[in-house]
Design a protein around this nucleic acid. Sequence first.
DNA 1: TAGAACGTTATT
DNA 2: AATAACGTTCTA
Length: 151
Amino acid sequence: MPRPRAGPGPPPEDMYDLSMDTMEAQSLCMQRKCLGKSSPLSKYIEAEHQQAGLFSLSSLEAITDVTVDLQKKRRKKCGACVPCLRKVNCGTCANCLNRKIGKQICKERKCEKLKKRQSEGDASEQHLKSRGMGCIPRRRTECGWSAGKLE
DNA sequence: TAGAACGTTATT
DNA sequence: AATAACGTTCTA
């Protein structure tokens, strides 16, 4: 059952027109567009944050380093594990059946390496924690943030 | 926390 | 340009 989502509507162009409806605009921003890590827009936002002095300059270098690491190109399948060696889609798993919308590879073919999250086994988060940056909010609910408490 | 949805990026 | 599929966010 497809959930009623926001849909592929036009992007909120007045995202930064906070005079309109600050809460709403920020909320939209928080929910998706701005805090994603992969889009050029998010990189721009990141730069904005830095310029706004949200991060101390001393930790900036280290963070930039980590950020670059996290924003590296997307990983590729190892090509050697059992799933990778599989050549045909099963055609019956959720991913196969939901191909058009889900945009995921057949579950039977999902590389073992890619099944793990990118940050797993990576010291990036620890790296940040050691610098007092234990939590980088990517979502409204992270870092003790709550809806309606964005000032 | 797993799975779904969707933006984005890599490949063809 | 079309397609495949990774990465992130959101919902149940």
